[in-house]
């Protein structure tokens, strides 16, 4: 099930709800309802709809330290153009790979992963990525400092949606 592009805009009420949840994801429906002057039931229905449409999701994020202080590694992959889609899917099946983006321009695919050692990173690249048919080259770059990250905005893929 390929997540299709959703162009429709959120109305003002949706936007107000999203804004408040972005500030505090644990705020009660009742508090949002009071602030926006609607009923609690309306808030509940709206949030449910946003969740069903894959526009919002509530989750726990944990700090790097809790996962053994891994380093974010980006892999710019050049592949046979006829095999891009298939390879994108196979890369996302690798559990260590947390992000797969089909690109136009710099590379065919951009993959990211969190690794706690050079050996672990090398193993994934040499054993699991380079042997895939169609992969021409893998260019690796390791993040040494994260200056900004917005955890509240992301691509919600179907696989992630639990609710």
């Amino acid at each position: 099930m390929k997540p299709e592009q959703r162009w429709e805009c959120l109305d003002r009420l949706d936007q107000g709800i999203v804004e408040r949840l972005a500030r505090d994801a644990r705020i009660s429906n009742r508090a949002i309802a009071a602030e926006l002057g609607v009923t609690e039931g309306t808030i509940r229905t709206r949030i449910k709809r946003l969740q069903n449409e894959g526009l919002i999701q509530f989750t726990v994020i944990t700090d790097f330290r809790m996962a053994g202080s891994p380093n974010l590694t980006m892999m710019g992959i050049k592949v046979d153009p006829s095999q891009v889609s298939g390879l994108a899917r196979r890369l996302s099946d690798i559990p260590e790979i947390t992000c797969v983006v089909v690109l136009l321009g710099r590379y065919s695919l951009l993959a990211m992963g969190l690794f706690t050692s050079v050996e672990q990173m090398n193993d994934v690249i040499v054993e699991h990525i380079r042997p895939l048919p169609g992969v021409q080259s893998v260019e690796t770059s390791i993040s040494v400092d994260s200056l900004k990250y917005e955890p509240g905005i992301a691509k919600i893929t179907r696989a992630r949606a639990i609710d």
Partner: peptide, 9 residues
């Protein structure tokens, strides 16, 4: 964007 899972940040 085929996969985008950043639960560790």
């Amino acid at each position: 964007i085929v996969k985008f899972e950043f639960n560790v940040v």
